[in-house]
Design a protein around this nucleic acid. Sequence first.
DNA 1: ATAATAGTGTCTCTCAGACACTATACC
DNA 2: GGTATAGTGTCTGAGAGACACTATTAT
Lengths: 257, 257
Amino acid sequence: MAKKPFTTASTTDEQAFLAGYDASQFPHPSLTVDVALVTADGGKLKAVLVQREQHPARGKWALPGTFVGIRESLDEAAQRALQTKVGISRIFLEQLYTFGQPDRDPRTRVVSVAYYALVDPGKLTKGFAADQRTQLIELSAKGTGKGQAAGPVHGLDEQGKRLPLAFDHGDILGMVVERLRGKLDYAPIGFELLPKKFTLRQLQDIHETILGRKLNKDSFRRRLIASGRIAATGEHEQAVGHRPAELYRFKGTQQRH
Amino acid sequence: MAKKPFTTASTTDEQAFLAGYDASQFPHPSLTVDVALVTADGGKLKAVLVQREQHPARGKWALPGTFVGIRESLDEAAQRALQTKVGISRIFLEQLYTFGQPDRDPRTRVVSVAYYALVDPGKLTKGFAADQRTQLIELSAKGTGKGQAAGPVHGLDEQGKRLPLAFDHGDILGMVVERLRGKLDYAPIGFELLPKKFTLRQLQDIHETILGRKLNKDSFRRRLIASGRIAATGEHEQAVGHRPAELYRFKGTQQRH
DNA sequence: ATAATAGTGTCTCTCAGACACTATACC
DNA sequence: GGTATAGTGTCTGAGAGACACTATTAT
C-alpha cells in the first residue's frame, strides 16, 4: 500500500464519499459539546461542574454538555449548553480541542468538542443555590507558567479534598489551563474574568492565578499600559483602606505592530 | 430561563443523557477528519490537495479526508486518511480545530475535525505521478509573522493562477498557516519539514517561508543554538560551491527553564 | 585569486526585573 | 501621624538586530 498510494480501494472510497453518502448507513460516533466555564476568584481557578446522579461515573463531577443538534453549529451548541445547564449567556466562548478516544465513554462512542468559557465571578454568584448538583469547584492545576503541562486536573472541595472528575474531563480541564496560560499574554483572557472596570492590581491577580506564580508588579504595569489594550477611566476605586487605584477598561481586541 | 437556570426541561434532558442514550434515535451530524499535509519547498508553502471529480465543488481542490470509524480514535482516522489517500505514514500529525457550520457541506450535515501534518518534501516527491488528481499545491498566505491572520487561503498553480478550494478548506488552511506561525518558536515545527540532518541556513529558510518574511541571520543562529533543541553533528554539507555549512540535528522535544 | 556563503565578535537598543522613592487614601 | 497600597524613576542584565570581520570551500 505504501508503494501504490492510489489504489482502486481508495478510489471507490472517494467515490462513495463524493456520491453523497447516506449518513444513516453505518454507525457514526455521537457528537457532543462540553464546556468548561472557568472563573478566577480569591486567587483560585474554578470551573462550574455538575455532579452526576447516574452511572457511569456516578457521583463524579462532569462538565456541562449537550448533544450537537443536526441544524446548529458547534458554537451554538456550546452556547445552548451554557444557557440550559448554567443559565448564562453572552460570555466569552472559544473552542478548545476535540476529544475522541473510543473508550472515553463506556456506554457508546461519543466524540466531544470541548469549549472553554470565561466569566467574571460577579456574574456567576447569583442563582447557584438553586441546584446543589451544579457548583463552582476549585481546580488543582500543576506546574506554573507557559511551558509546563497543567493536567490532568481534579476538583477540590472547601477543605482541599480531591473531587474526582467524570470521564476524561480532568484531561479537558488540564488542557484548558494550559491554553489559558499560553494565550494570556496575547489574547484578551484576563479581561473576561473581571468586571468592565478594574484596577491593575485585580488584573495582575488574575494573571497570577492562571499562571500559578507571582509576577513583578512594575513590569506588569508597564507591559499592560504599553500594550495599548487598556485605557484609564479617570475613576478610582473607593473605600479600600489605602490609596485607591485608578480604574481601567479593556479597549477591545486590536492589532499591534 | 435566565432567572431559573435549572428547569424541569434541563433536568429531564440530563436524565435522558445519563440513562444511556441510544445513538441511532435521532439524526446526528456525520463526523470526518480532514488533513492538511503541509511541506515547505523552494521558499513556498505547499499542501497535498485532491481535485474533486464530482459535484458539489467539482474541479475544486480539497484536503484528503475520511469518515471517522466507530472504533477508531480521531488521530487514527487522520493517520488512515494520510495512508489511504497519500500513501504516507509515520509523520508529524496534530489536531487543529473542528469545523461544524451546518452549511459547510451542501449535501448533509458534516462536522470535520481538521488536522495538520508536516513532512520533509524529500519524503513526498516519489509517487506523485501516479494520480493526477492528487498534487502538491502552493498556498497563498496573507500577512506575515505571528500577529496577523493568514486566511482564507487558496491554491496557486505553476503560473501563480488561483486554484479554488472546496467547501471551507480555504479557511482550514488559513488556520493551519496561522497555527504554524504561532507555534514555530516553541514547538518542533521547522524540524519536521527537513531531513534529519540540516544546516542552519535550511532551517532559517523554513522559518522564513512559514512566517512570510526575512529573519536576521545572526540572531536566528544564536537563538536556535541557545535553545538547546539542536545539536551539531560535526559533519558538513558537500559540493555546494562555497564554504560548506555544518549539519545539525534535532535533539528531540525537551523542557527548558 | 575570486566568489560566495559559513561563522564569530562586538556594539546598541529594547525590555523585564529589581529597588528605592513619593503619593494618597482610611484609620 | 501610622499603615497600606498606588504609582514613578532609575539601574542592571539578557537578548535581538546590525555590522564588521574572519574562515573555508569550489571554480
